[in-house]
Design a protein around this nucleic acid. Structure first.
Lengths: 365, 365
DNA sequence: CTGAAAGCGCTAACAT
DNA sequence: ATGTTAGCGCTTTCAG
């Protein structure tokens, strides 16, 4: 058994090799080849480019595949072809429906070229992001999608070294790693402020989470910053901007925060929550305290979550089309993995819009 | 170049082989071996069992790894070791926070043994479930976690053929494919009915989605069935049990459905929604219509979602510890991939509990 | 249209 | 403690 058999006989040797293994092994391409009396290459072709195979052969092979329940091993295939056929997506959380929308949009587009999407999440933790990244890189994704514009330096370095296309989503970085598809969270904040100011309010507050080391919602923070800047531009005070609690924000976060704000400044007229989730919490806490929304307090959120449309009054919010964002990112990714398209870094802004509903009214002037 | 070099010189031949390739190639284990003057096996050992390598050698190798930014290729490693190091999880949707909890619980446990979790979702579509499954199987997960007890026959067959451990979660199948960790959705329905009946109500309704071919929420359906059976057992009518709209249920689904029910039977006293989401929709629609909850209508949900605690009145619901469920499934999976543990099919019931809050009151008797 | 050779990057199982 | 051999299951490349 140690005498090397001339290589041109290798495929014929299969029977000998397999005979030693225990019966219930998973079928390989060899088994299919043997059963249908062709070479492994022909089986491979039936799977990847069936048209070049003679119909008769093709059917024989197809039958063998079906009979054996053969499922090709993609890992082995990737190793040989140097194409793993998947793209990685790193999200802060699975629970946010806007991020799910992104995943949906991406999946739809990537499916066109048979790419799989591998989803990982970080719980808003940059250290965890790096851990996930390192892990993912070892599986050789053909491209990587990252959420947000803020990452650990060392994570960015491994990314650069890995020489894999990178797309950042959901925020437009000033210094993108490579490409980006998103919107300006800073502009979201400014837009929200402008909207409330345009309604004639003067005592305007905001609610966000506080940064806690690696655990933070940088996109939310961007939004409050934009909000504050716009207030200042209009000569209004930012005293009622509250950063409290740890990311991610939640219903409860909104309830607690508005309680604090209401106690501190009972004359507050309007408030912007960096997420609809906390905005809903605000509205619910107001219901409990008998604070009329929008009669006494106008409330505005961000994200256009389903629940915002459902509550009473329905929530005025800022909408970003995350599904379209995912699709747009998907298109870009397909170009990148195809090697088509510019080398130049693409920055795509999907924009945003104000959705006016009942939770904001005109100020009494 | 066609004269075969004696095999014991193969590793020494590396330089020649690599010289032809373009410079900026990703570093392989060979590059590391060459740079640190050891064999590839030693590099491999530094990565997998560092203790058996001499400290001096280990450090030389570690330096080379760092200098080259070497990231081992897991796909190649799996091929050789026959261990892919990941487990697949198929969820109906990413948007449901209870399923996210399951993913969290699983991740926590699997991480202990360095297993990755690969998450896929189906949008409650059994055809899509099968598609995902086929796809996943080609990547050779070491185990597969499926949601629910209902699957396409052909999907189950490929699963059986693939000879990969399977765990079904979130429902306890009568005929499990193999193992299951979950709770009885049927019992959820019965428990809800018993709770409402125990409060003295007679005119009791329910709200669920309607099956639509492959797109359906079998677990929700199980819950209404249990609910109906319990009503019958108590001699109550099931006329107010409404199946309407397509899965998954939503806030809006609840609003619409309760509207229908209220119009049809204004004297309805209590209603069970198969999900907190639709239950919240019910409460919101009641607010709009001026129907007092729980004064005129008692409302009960399932799932113990955050929003239920936040609304006014807070929602009475049925709670299942999905995080623990995920962890429990994780433990089972680790046993399965380790080959430890029984061959026998394990069925683990994580139970359920009623969470009494303000949306259900005592009937006026 | 089909096949043989060669090898992807790694590790199990033996050497030494 | 480290190295060598052989090959995981597939595809690329080139020959016929």
């Amino acid at each position: 058994m140690n005498s090397r058999i001339p290589s041109r006989e290798r495929d014929k040797e299969d029977d000998l090799q397999r005979k030693r293994s225990k019966p219930p092994q998973r079928a390989t391409i060899r088994d299919v080849a043997r059963l249908s009396g062709v070479s492994r290459m022909t089986v491979s072709r039936v799977l990847s480019e069936p048209d070049v195979v003679l119909p008769a052969t093709r059917e024989r092979v197809a039958k063998a595949i079906a009979d054996l329940g053969y499922v090709p091993d993609k890992a082995a295939g990737s190793l040989a072809s140097r194409r793993t056929g998947f793209i990685a997506l790193i999200l802060p959380t699975l629970t946010n429906s806007n991020f799910s929308m992104v995943a949906h949009g991406l999946t739809e587009i990537l499916r066109e070229r048979d790419y799989d999407l591998l989803i990982a999440y970080t719980d808003y933790d940059l250290a965890e992001e790096e851990r996930q990244l390192t892990n993912l890189l070892a599986r050789r994704p053909e491209a990587i999608v990252l959420t947000g514009a803020t990452h650990r330096r060392s994570a960015v370095l491994s990314l650069l070294r890995a020489d894999v296309p990178v797309v950042e989503i959901a925020d437009l970085p000033n210094q993108p790693i490579e490409h980006a598809v998103g919107f300006s969270n800073y502009e979201v904040g400014r837009t929200a402020a402008r909207h409330l100011i345009s309604k004639g309010f003067k005592r305007i507050g905001a609610i966000a989470s506080k940064n806690d080391g690696d655990i933070c919602d940088h996109r939310g923070e961007e939004r409050v910053c934009g909000f504050e800047d716009e207030l200042r531009l209009s000569g209004l005070s930012t005293d009622l901007v509250l950063r409290n609690g740890r990311a991610p924000v939640s219903y409860e976060h909104g309830s607690t925060a508005i309680g604090l704000l209401l106690d501190r400044a009972p004359d507050i007229e309007a408030v912007f929550a960096v997420s609809d989730l906390s905005a809903v919490g605000v509205v619910m806490e107001c219901q409990r305290r008998g604070v009329d929304v929008p009669g006494r307090l106008s409330v505005m959120g961000f994200g256009n979550f389903d629940i915002g449309r459902e509550i009473n009054p329905p929530l005025t919010t800022i909408h970003v089309d995350f599904h379209a964002l995912g699709q747009r990112a998907g298109r870009l990714l397909l170009e990148l993995v195809a090697g088509t398209g510019e080398d130049a870094s693409e920055i795509i802004d999907v924009g945003l819009s104000v959705v006016e509903r009942g939770s904001v009214r005109e100020a009494n002037v």
